[in-house]
Design a protein around this nucleic acid. Structure first.
Lengths: 75, 75
DNA sequence: ATTACAACGGACTATGAGTCACTTTTTGGT
DNA sequence: ACCAAAAAGTGACTCATAGTCCGTTGTAAT
């Protein structure tokens, strides 16, 4: 699976856990509502600066965000 | 510190540990040597797709790459 | 029927990807 | 210490795409 898709899935999971709408998360992360959709569906190749805002908007950090089965398959 | 700089420092650390030159790593990651310099010095806001190539060029993965003190300070 | 949410599209602007010629710093050998 | 070569950094550039802003469509719940 592409890194885009893995990241999108991870965001979706964490967002649902927080019971946030895409729009609410987009607002916290200061990105466009429609852009968040693109990120979650794996269509977007985000930059680390935007990913940083999204991750913090989700109330977590890089270490925790990537500490997931999806991200340690390839070594 | 900016996320760019943190990532640059982390790459430098892992690259040195592998005793690789920027050029050698750049080759593995399929990016230009001068581009690698820009990333390591924190001047570039890389996309996750490029970061993916660099991380794998370093022989590691996202989970391990971000499993570092630098990345769990803010929560 | 209305409301809230998610996906999608097109047009647009800002900025990242990728490359080059050149300079500076670091390294190792004698 | 000196010198040459390797390694790392800089500025400027083109082209692709990241990211925004307008809207529409589909779905589910009320």
């Amino acid at each position: 699976m592409s890194i885009n898709k893995k990241i999108g899935k991870r965001i979706l999971t964490l967002r649902k856990a927080q019971k946030l709408s895409q729009e609410a998360l987009a607002h916290k992360a200061d990105v466009d509502r429609t852009y968040m959709t693109g990120v979650e569906t794996g269509k977007r190749n985000v930059t680390v600066r935007v990913l940083d805002r999204i991750i913090h908007g989700l109330g977590t950090n890089f270490a925790t965000f990537f500490n997931d089965k999806e991200f340690d398959d390839e070594k």
